[in-house]
């Protein structure tokens, strides 16, 4: 399954849908396939749990990371570096963008919309049937529309990243298949993939991911139960 087909792939969605985890996994899979990759942490909304947390892992795979100037610092100032603009102009590296949650986070994307359109992009909306405010497909669709408006870009696909963190079970994933199909039907967009940490039969377009985003007290042992 080929998920990354365009020079720029944008990962957006409701906060807590698992955008960062999806973006980090996509970047690693492209890098492992030999593709030069740049990942941009464009999240100016969330103070914690972000792509910039994984800079050492990403850099170990020769992935270039561009993050807001004060990411993970004690400053609450949403400043994006000039290198974001440069990344959308170059042609050597594939670009993956991790956007902040909701329409508020997508505003940061709007500033680059023209350049992104000119280069060619996919904008994937990550949905999670186990997020409280987007548990109905119609709620997920309105959120997607709000994001498109703020981003000044149209979505091109849906990533089903339904999860309950470490308590995710195959049943929860299988339950979410019809939810994701509803979102696709209501928007006319294709399902890009269904993220899962373990092989589950019956999942459409499965994409095997590692759960990187973790709490400080989670040890490696608990990891295997996810």
């Amino acid at each position: 399954m080929q998920i990354l087909n365009k020079p720029i792939t944008i990962i957006t969605g409701h906060y807590g849908s698992g955008k960062t985890n999806a973006a980090v996994n996509l970047a690693l899979s492209a890098a492992q396939a030999g593709q030069p990759v740049t990942i941009i942490d464009l999240d100016i909304v969330n103070p914690y749990f972000r792509t910039a947390d994984f800079i050492p892992t990403l850099q170990a795979h020769d992935i270039q990371v561009i993050a807001p100037v004060y990411a993970n610092s004690n400053l609450d100032i949403p400043v994006l570096p000039a290198s974001v603009d440069a990344a959308f102009s170059q042609t050597e590296r594939m670009v993956i963008v991790d956007v902040g949650g909701d329409d508020a986070g997508a505003i940061a994307l709007g500033r680059y919309a023209k350049k992104i359109e000119a280069r060619g992009y996919d904008l994937f909306c990550v949905v999670n049937a186990r997020r409280y405010l987007t548990k109905d497909s119609s709620q997920a669709v309105s959120m997607l529309r709000e994001i498109e408006q703020a981003a000044r870009l149209l979505a091109t696909g849906i990533i089903n990243n339904t999860n309950l963190g470490p308590q995710t079970t195959p049943e929860i994933l299988l339950d979410s298949v019809s939810f994701a199909a509803d979102v696709c039907a209501k928007t006319g967009l294709p399902l890009v993939c269904t993220c899962t940490t373990q092989p589950v039969s019956g999942l459409p377009d499965p994409f095997l991911v590692t759960r990187f985003v973790k709490a400080p007290w989670e040890t490696d042992q608990e990891d295997h139960t996810s």
């Binding site: 906060y15 807590g16 999670n128 186990r130 997020r131 409280y132 405010l133 548990k135 999860n163 309950l164 963190g165 308590q167």
Partner: peptide
């Protein structure tokens, strides 16, 4: 049913 929620959201909903 279980949902994934951010602490701040869960406080508000509760």
């Amino acid at each position: 049913e279980k949902y994934l929620m951010k602490g701040n959201e869960a406080i508000a909903e509760a």
